[in-house]
Structure formats: C-alpha cells, structure tokens
Amino acid sequence: MDVYAALFVVVLSAFLGYEVISRVPVLLHTPLMSGSNFIHGIVLVGAMVALAIAQTPLEQAVGFVAVVMGAMNVTGGYAVTERILAMFDRSKKQGGSP
C-alpha cells in the first residue's frame, strides 16, 4: 500500500470521525461509546484472516483467541448498544401519551 494513500485514508477517516460526533448531545454519550465500541468489532474480520493464514499450532491457538474475542466484541457490543437505545424508543412512546 502506498504510504501517501494510507495517510490520506487516515486523515480523512479521522476528520469524519470527529465531524460525525462533534454535535452529539450528552444524552447519547453512553450509547455512542457503546456503538463505536461495536464498530471496532470489525477486528473480527482481521481475526478471521489471521486464523486462516495460521500454520503452526501456536499461531492457530492465538488466532482462535483473536476470533473468539473479536466475535465477543461484535455481538456483545451490538447487544449492549441495542438494549440501551431500545429504552429511548420506549420512553418516547410513553412520553407521548400522558
């Protein structure tokens, strides 16, 4: 990968991350932290590749640990975020009908 192409990707992604979050209300800080926690669960994809190329038993063992942890990050991160946000939905409905 070209070093400059990589730097462009980093700079633009960093700005995006900053811009997307910059006007978030305090109310959503916790779900947002949880949601971004879910998004770095994309590490699972890397873990799958790492285990796929593993050759020695040690590499396989470490790769397996990576996949297990990555999968936990994905499903746990999703479920926690979903649970928190589901509550906001419910309160909106109840709040609308006094």
Partner: peptide
C-alpha cells in the same frame, strides 16, 4: 484495529478503526 488493518492491508479495518479512534478521542 487500524494498525492491524495497515499491517494486513485491510481497508475496512483501517477506516473503521481510525473512525472509532477519532470519534472516541473526541468523546
């Protein structure tokens, strides 16, 4: 995650990782 993404040349990991890195830092 982004560092690993660079290492194995996986753009999804790079962009998602940096995105969370930047958003997380601001948060």
């Amino acid at each position: 995650v982004a560092m690993d993404g660079f290492s194995i040349q996986n753009y999804a990991m790079i962009v998602a990782g940096i995105l969370v890195g930047a958003a997380g830092t601001l948060l």
